[in-house]
Amino acid sequence: MKHTISVLVENHSGVLSRISGLFSRRGFNIDSLAVGPTNDPSISRITIVADGDEHTVEQIEKQLNKLIEVIKVKTFGRDDFVARELMIVKVDAPAEKRSEIMTIAEITGAKVMDITLTTMTLEICDRYDKIARFENVIEPYGILEMARTGTVAVERGSEYFSAKK
């Protein structure tokens, strides 16, 4: 099962390598990992999507908490968070295919970022499963290149995840 885990860490150099090292040496599988600054410049937020059963997730949380620079860890419940990731694809788009691709973009909420005589570059920002669906329908046209971020996520509702609480 997939789990989305948010981690608040000290914004120190080396923290990311400690965290990625922890996952590889303990045999935890990461689907994606995204890191960025937060409103507090001393704190970075890492979002990890990991695969594993309940026991594995519990161990991931506990082992993360053991790292001195990890301030807080939270695993989100099934649907109580909003999540997004970003994908940019460059597809084969000869003139006769362009309007079809435009239609797909319109339906899926993707945006056209660049166009040439033979290619189109599209961006989509959505949930993991929506992006997978987009990828599915765009794939037959011929994906030339793809770049994708990890998931970032925030809890729904008025509760919030903060180092101070």
């Binding site: 026991h55 519990e58 161990q59 506990k62 082992q63 908490n65």
Partner: peptide, 8 residues
């Protein structure tokens, strides 16, 4: 003292 050892 190490929560990670419990249940590991």
């Amino acid at each position: 003292i190490d929560p990670a050892e419990i249940g590991k």
